[in-house]
């Protein structure tokens, strides 16, 4: 068996990219973003992308780099929030957006990875996001049919990973990464700590290595914080 470990992001992406492809990218806000692989995607110049990600980075960070570089044609997301470029491109018609409720987005990806082509959810019933989608009543309530999401390539970020592709995420940097790892035709993981087999406690593995095709040691993590919020230290501790 060929090893899953690649020396660089560029090497790991080799042979996988084509214009018009669909890419899933993990992360919530700026937490748990595959920073190294996103930068390599920017460098590759691949275009006309459909990107599935909860957000689209923020000024100068994460997927914003691809948006700013004109590489993204369509976003499938739940939140635009404080990303001015995303909002402007969408409102001016320069970017296609398929907006999903966040839980529906997560479940569509989970369904994609689990081989379930569609499911019903109450979320969005009676709103414009359900327009055109089949609805059905179950026990007196209206549910909307949602379809699975799969991608040509999933890029995810974990805290630790071994050479077999087993992954462990850290705190809320987990978010969309585990489901996205299951829903790519090819899944690329970048980790802060690439470790040897036997270093991870099997009971603690979040993503089993079967889902990960290629893995790299991530580099130059900025791990930017969008909203640093603190509380004052109690007076006694300040002394």
């Amino acid at each position: 068996m060929t090893g899953k470990v690649y020396g660089t992001a560029r090497a790991a992406l080799d042979g996988l990219l084509f214009d018009g492809m669909t890419i899933m990218s993990g992360g919530f806000g700026l937490s748990g973003n595959p920073e190294t692989l996103i930068f390599a995607l920017k460098e590759s110049g691949v275009r006309n992308l459909t990107v599935i990600s909860n957000n689209c980075g923020a000024d100068g960070f994460g997927l914003w780099l691809l948006l700013n570089n004109g590489q993204i044609k369509t976003m499938i997301s739940s939140y635009i929030g404080e990303n001015k470029l995303f909002e402007q491109l969408y409102l001016s018609g320069k970017l296609e957006l398929e907006l999903n409720p966040q839980g529906t987005l997560a479940e569509r990806i989970r369904a994609g990875g689990a081989g379930i082509p569609a499911f019903f959810t109450k979320t969005g019933a009676g709103t414009i996001l359900a327009e055109g989608k089949p609805v059905q009543e179950f026990e007196g309530e209206t549910y909307v049919m949602e379809r699975w999401l799969r991608a040509d390539l999933s890029i995810v970020k974990a805290w630790k990973g071994d050479t077999e592709g087993n992954l462990i995420y850290r705190k809320t940097a987990r978010n969309f990464n585990p489901v996205m790892a299951t829903a790519g035709k090819v899944t690329l993981a970048e980790v802060e700590h690439l470790v040897e087999p036997g270093s991870l406690e099997p009971d603690c593995v979040h993503t089993p290595g079967i889902y990960v095709d290629r893995i790299i040691q991530g580099t130059n993590y900025e791990k930017r914080i969008e909203r640093i919020t603190t509380r004052p230290r109690p007076a006694a501790e300040q002394a």
């Binding site: 700026l30 705190k171 585990p178």
Partner: peptide, 25 residues
């Protein structure tokens, strides 16, 4: 502050002895 520990409003938070983490799904 820990960049791996934020709330849904993207603010930095802390964990409690009884906290748990899980995926978006």
């Amino acid at each position: 502050e820990d960049p791996d520990l934020i709330n849904a409003g993207k603010q930095t938070v802390t964990q409690l002895p009884t906290s748990s983490y899980f995926s978006s799904a």
